[in-house]
Protein backbone atom coordinates (compact mmCIF):
# COMPACT_ATOMS: atom_id res chain seq x y z
CA UNK A 1 0.00 0.00 0.00
CA UNK A 2 2.78 2.41 0.95
CA UNK A 3 6.32 2.12 -0.28
CA UNK A 4 8.89 4.63 0.93
CA UNK A 5 12.30 4.36 -0.66
CA UNK A 6 15.42 6.24 0.39
CA UNK A 7 13.46 9.28 1.57
CA UNK A 8 15.45 12.41 2.30
CA UNK A 9 13.66 15.44 3.73
CA UNK A 10 14.80 18.82 4.97
CA UNK A 11 13.20 21.33 7.27
CA UNK A 12 14.61 24.78 6.81
CA UNK A 13 18.15 23.96 5.75
CA UNK A 14 18.53 20.93 7.96
CA UNK A 15 18.30 17.44 6.59
CA UNK A 16 16.15 15.46 9.02
CA UNK A 17 15.30 12.29 7.09
CA UNK A 18 18.38 10.72 5.61
CA UNK A 19 17.44 7.80 3.46
CA UNK A 20 14.40 6.29 5.11
CA UNK A 21 12.84 3.20 3.56
CA UNK A 22 9.69 1.45 4.70
CA UNK A 23 7.06 -0.73 3.11
CA UNK A 24 3.57 -1.27 4.45
CA UNK A 25 1.12 -3.80 3.02
CA UNK A 26 -2.65 -3.71 3.29
CA UNK A 27 -3.86 -5.31 6.51
CA UNK A 28 -0.72 -4.38 8.46
CA UNK A 29 -0.13 -2.17 11.43
CA UNK A 30 3.35 -0.74 11.74
CA UNK A 31 4.75 1.18 14.67
CA UNK A 32 7.58 3.65 14.45
CA UNK A 33 9.33 4.42 17.68
CA UNK A 34 12.23 6.69 18.34
CA UNK A 35 13.58 9.31 20.70
CA UNK A 36 12.41 12.92 20.69
CA UNK A 37 13.80 14.77 17.72
CA UNK A 38 14.43 11.59 15.73
CA UNK A 39 12.33 12.85 12.83
CA UNK A 40 9.07 10.98 13.43
CA UNK A 41 6.84 14.01 12.95
CA UNK A 42 8.95 15.10 10.02
CA UNK A 43 8.18 11.75 8.38
CA UNK A 44 4.45 12.23 9.02
CA UNK A 45 4.49 15.77 7.65
CA UNK A 46 6.57 14.84 4.61
CA UNK A 47 4.04 12.11 3.82
CA UNK A 48 1.20 14.57 4.36
CA UNK A 49 2.83 17.15 2.10
CA UNK A 50 3.16 19.93 4.64
CA UNK A 51 4.73 23.08 3.16
CA UNK A 52 8.22 23.60 4.53
CA UNK A 53 8.99 19.88 4.72
CA UNK A 54 10.88 19.42 1.52
CA UNK A 55 11.57 16.02 0.07
CA UNK A 56 14.97 16.26 -1.60
CA UNK A 57 15.43 12.65 -2.68
CA UNK A 58 13.70 9.30 -2.69
CA UNK A 59 10.23 8.19 -3.64
CA UNK A 60 6.93 7.34 -2.02
CA UNK A 61 4.29 5.34 -3.78
CA UNK A 62 0.80 5.01 -2.35
CA UNK A 63 -1.35 2.30 -3.90
CA UNK A 64 0.81 2.48 -6.97
CA UNK A 65 0.69 6.24 -7.51
CA UNK A 66 3.38 8.81 -6.79
CA UNK A 67 2.37 10.30 -3.45
CA UNK A 68 4.90 13.13 -3.62
CA UNK A 69 3.30 14.39 -6.80
CA UNK A 70 -0.02 15.06 -5.08
CA UNK A 71 -1.22 18.10 -3.15
CA UNK A 72 -2.09 17.52 0.51
CA UNK A 73 -5.84 17.49 -0.12
CA UNK A 74 -5.38 15.02 -2.98
CA UNK A 75 -3.46 12.70 -0.67
CA UNK A 76 -6.43 12.78 1.69
CA UNK A 77 -8.85 12.04 -1.14
CA UNK A 78 -6.61 9.15 -2.18
CA UNK A 79 -7.23 7.63 1.26
CA UNK A 80 -4.48 8.93 3.50
CA UNK A 81 -5.21 10.33 6.95
CA UNK A 82 -2.75 12.19 9.12
CA UNK A 83 -3.40 12.23 12.86
CA UNK A 84 -1.61 15.28 14.22
CA UNK A 85 0.66 15.28 17.25
CA UNK A 86 -0.62 18.80 17.89
CA UNK A 87 -4.09 19.17 16.37
CA UNK A 88 -4.75 22.69 15.15
CA UNK A 89 -7.47 25.02 16.44
CA UNK A 90 -9.72 26.68 13.87
CA UNK A 91 -11.73 29.48 15.52
CA UNK A 92 -15.25 30.01 14.27
CA UNK A 93 -15.42 26.85 12.14
CA UNK A 94 -17.54 24.09 13.66
CA UNK A 95 -16.24 20.55 13.68
CA UNK A 96 -19.34 19.30 11.92
CA UNK A 97 -19.19 21.84 9.14
CA UNK A 98 -15.46 21.28 8.72
CA UNK A 99 -15.81 17.51 8.53
CA UNK A 100 -18.81 17.53 6.28
CA UNK A 101 -17.06 19.81 3.80
CA UNK A 102 -13.88 17.79 4.06
CA UNK A 103 -15.64 14.52 3.46
CA UNK A 104 -17.67 15.86 0.56
CA UNK A 105 -14.61 17.50 -0.93
CA UNK A 106 -12.83 14.10 -0.81
CA UNK A 107 -15.85 12.39 -2.31
CA UNK A 108 -16.02 14.97 -5.06
CA UNK A 109 -12.33 14.44 -5.83
CA UNK A 110 -13.02 10.71 -6.14
CA UNK A 111 -16.08 11.27 -8.32
CA UNK A 112 -18.50 10.13 -5.61
CA UNK A 113 -21.73 11.82 -4.66
CA UNK A 114 -21.84 14.17 -1.69
CA UNK A 115 -23.48 12.97 1.52
CA UNK A 116 -26.68 14.77 2.47
CA UNK A 117 -26.90 16.62 5.79
CA UNK A 118 -28.90 13.80 7.33
CA UNK A 119 -26.56 11.07 6.15
CA UNK A 120 -23.60 12.99 7.44
CA UNK A 121 -25.06 13.61 10.90
CA UNK A 122 -25.88 9.93 11.23
CA UNK A 123 -22.30 9.02 10.36
CA UNK A 124 -20.87 11.64 12.73
CA UNK A 125 -23.05 10.43 15.61
CA UNK A 126 -21.96 6.86 15.07
CA UNK A 127 -18.25 7.73 15.10
CA UNK A 128 -18.57 10.12 18.04
CA UNK A 129 -20.24 7.31 20.01
CA UNK A 130 -17.45 4.92 19.04
CA UNK A 131 -14.91 7.34 20.51
CA UNK A 132 -17.19 8.25 23.44
CA UNK A 133 -17.23 11.88 22.39
CA UNK A 134 -20.17 14.14 23.15
CA UNK A 135 -21.96 15.40 20.01
CA UNK A 136 -21.88 18.85 21.57
CA UNK A 137 -18.11 18.86 21.13
CA UNK A 138 -18.62 18.26 17.44
CA UNK A 139 -20.77 21.36 17.22
CA UNK A 140 -18.04 23.50 18.71
CA UNK A 141 -15.25 25.18 16.78
CA UNK A 142 -12.53 22.75 15.70
CA UNK A 143 -10.31 21.99 18.71
CA UNK A 144 -10.88 25.43 20.24
CA UNK A 145 -10.82 25.12 24.00
CA UNK A 146 -10.40 21.33 23.83
CA UNK A 147 -8.06 19.66 26.32
CA UNK A 148 -5.07 17.78 24.95
CA UNK A 149 -6.92 14.49 25.34
CA UNK A 150 -10.09 15.82 23.72
CA UNK A 151 -8.09 16.98 20.72
CA UNK A 152 -6.65 13.51 20.23
CA UNK A 153 -10.06 11.93 20.59
CA UNK A 154 -11.36 14.40 18.04
CA UNK A 155 -8.62 13.32 15.63
CA UNK A 156 -9.94 9.79 15.89
CA UNK A 157 -13.55 10.86 15.38
CA UNK A 158 -12.37 12.64 12.23
CA UNK A 159 -10.57 9.50 11.13
CA UNK A 160 -13.74 7.50 11.68
CA UNK A 161 -15.81 9.88 9.60
CA UNK A 162 -13.29 10.21 6.78
CA UNK A 163 -12.66 6.45 6.71
CA UNK A 164 -9.15 6.40 5.20
CA UNK A 165 -7.29 3.38 3.88
CA UNK A 166 -3.99 4.46 5.40
CA UNK A 167 -3.74 6.25 8.75
CA UNK A 168 -0.51 7.85 9.89
CA UNK A 169 -0.99 8.62 13.56
CA UNK A 170 1.60 10.88 15.13
CA UNK A 171 1.69 10.37 18.90
CA UNK A 172 -2.05 9.99 19.14
CA UNK A 173 -1.41 8.48 22.58
CA UNK A 174 0.27 11.51 24.13
CA UNK A 175 -1.95 13.54 26.42
CA UNK A 176 -4.38 10.66 27.00
CA UNK A 177 -5.21 9.20 30.39
CA UNK A 178 -5.57 5.43 30.76
CA UNK A 179 -9.30 5.34 30.01
CA UNK A 180 -9.01 7.62 27.00
CA UNK A 181 -6.09 5.52 25.75
CA UNK A 182 -8.31 2.42 25.83
CA UNK A 183 -11.11 4.21 24.01
CA UNK A 184 -8.77 5.59 21.37
CA UNK A 185 -7.02 2.23 21.02
CA UNK A 186 -10.26 0.36 20.47
CA UNK A 187 -11.38 3.14 18.10
CA UNK A 188 -8.26 2.65 15.99
CA UNK A 189 -8.83 -1.10 15.94
CA UNK A 190 -12.49 -0.72 14.99
CA UNK A 191 -11.85 1.79 12.22
CA UNK A 192 -8.55 0.62 10.78
CA UNK A 193 -7.90 -3.04 11.56
CA UNK A 194 -9.24 -4.37 8.29
CA UNK A 195 -7.72 -6.39 5.49
CA UNK A 196 -7.75 -3.47 3.03
CA UNK A 197 -6.40 -0.86 5.41
CA UNK A 198 -3.12 -0.08 7.08
CA UNK A 199 -1.79 2.01 9.96
CA UNK A 200 1.50 3.67 10.71
CA UNK A 201 1.55 4.39 14.44
CA UNK A 202 4.13 6.87 15.59
CA UNK A 203 4.73 6.71 19.30
CA UNK A 204 7.45 6.60 21.82
CA UNK A 205 5.61 4.65 24.42
CA UNK A 206 4.76 1.01 24.67
CA UNK A 207 1.35 1.69 26.15
CA UNK A 208 -0.57 2.43 22.93
CA UNK A 209 0.91 -0.73 21.43
CA UNK A 210 -0.71 -2.75 24.20
CA UNK A 211 -4.06 -1.56 22.84
CA UNK A 212 -3.26 -1.61 19.14
CA UNK A 213 -0.93 -4.50 18.53
CA UNK A 214 1.48 -3.83 15.68
CA UNK A 215 2.68 -6.42 13.22
CA UNK A 216 6.00 -4.64 12.87
CA UNK A 217 7.96 -2.24 15.02
CA UNK A 218 10.62 0.04 13.55
CA UNK A 219 13.17 2.14 15.35
CA UNK A 220 13.78 5.55 13.80
CA UNK A 221 17.04 7.22 14.73
CA UNK A 222 19.24 9.68 12.89
CA UNK A 223 16.67 10.05 10.12
CA UNK A 224 16.63 6.35 9.17
CA UNK A 225 14.99 3.13 10.20
CA UNK A 226 17.80 1.46 12.12
CA UNK A 227 16.02 -1.65 13.30
CA UNK A 228 12.85 -3.55 12.50
CA UNK A 229 11.23 -6.34 14.48
CA UNK A 230 7.97 -7.70 15.78
CA UNK A 231 5.95 -6.49 18.79
CA UNK A 232 8.68 -7.79 21.09
CA UNK A 233 10.98 -5.01 19.85
CA UNK A 234 8.70 -2.42 21.48
CA UNK A 235 9.06 -4.24 24.78
CA UNK A 236 12.81 -4.39 24.34
CA UNK A 237 12.90 -0.63 23.67
CA UNK A 238 10.85 0.00 26.75
CA UNK A 239 13.27 -2.07 28.84
CA UNK A 240 16.60 -1.08 27.38
CA UNK A 241 15.99 2.43 25.98
CA UNK A 242 16.54 3.74 22.46
CA UNK A 243 20.20 4.47 22.76
CA UNK A 244 21.31 0.94 23.42
CA UNK A 245 19.29 -0.36 20.51
CA UNK A 246 20.14 2.43 18.08
CA UNK A 247 23.84 1.97 18.84
CA UNK A 248 23.77 -1.79 18.55
CA UNK A 249 22.07 -1.49 15.16
Amino acid sequence: MLKIENLHATVGDTEILKGLSLEIQAGEIHAIMGPNGAGKSTLAYALGGRPGYEVTAGSVSFNGTDLLDMDPHERAAAGMFLGFQYPVEIPGVSNLQFLRESLNSQRGERGEEALSGGEFIKLAKEKAALLKMDMDMLKRAVNVGFSGGEKKRNEMVQMGILDPTLAILDETDSGLDIDALRTVGSGINAIMRQPDKAVLLITHYQRLLDEVQPDYVHVLAGGRIVKTGGPELAQQLENEGYEAIAEAA
Partner: peptide
Protein backbone atom coordinates in the same frame (compact mmCIF):
# COMPACT_ATOMS: atom_id res chain seq x y z
CA UNK B 1 -3.10 30.65 9.61
CA UNK B 2 -0.86 28.38 7.54
CA UNK B 3 -1.01 25.59 10.07
CA UNK B 4 -4.78 25.63 9.94
CA UNK B 5 -4.69 25.61 6.14
CA UNK B 6 -2.48 22.53 6.11
CA UNK B 7 -4.62 20.86 8.77
CA UNK B 8 -7.69 21.44 6.64
CA UNK B 9 -5.94 20.23 3.49
CA UNK B 10 -4.90 17.06 5.31
CA UNK B 11 -8.60 16.35 5.81
CA UNK B 12 -9.27 16.70 2.12
CA UNK B 13 -10.37 20.30 1.76
CA UNK B 14 -8.98 21.93 -1.33
CA UNK B 15 -7.09 25.18 -0.70
CA UNK B 16 -9.93 27.36 -1.92
CA UNK B 17 -12.52 25.68 0.28
CA UNK B 18 -10.19 25.88 3.29
CA UNK B 19 -9.64 29.61 2.77
CA UNK B 20 -13.34 30.15 2.29
CA UNK B 21 -14.19 28.45 5.59
CA UNK B 22 -11.64 30.47 7.51
CA UNK B 23 -12.54 33.81 5.94
CA UNK B 24 -16.26 33.23 6.41
CA UNK B 25 -15.72 32.50 10.07
CA UNK B 26 -13.53 35.57 10.42
Amino acid sequence: DKQALFYMASRGLDPQAAKRLMLHAF
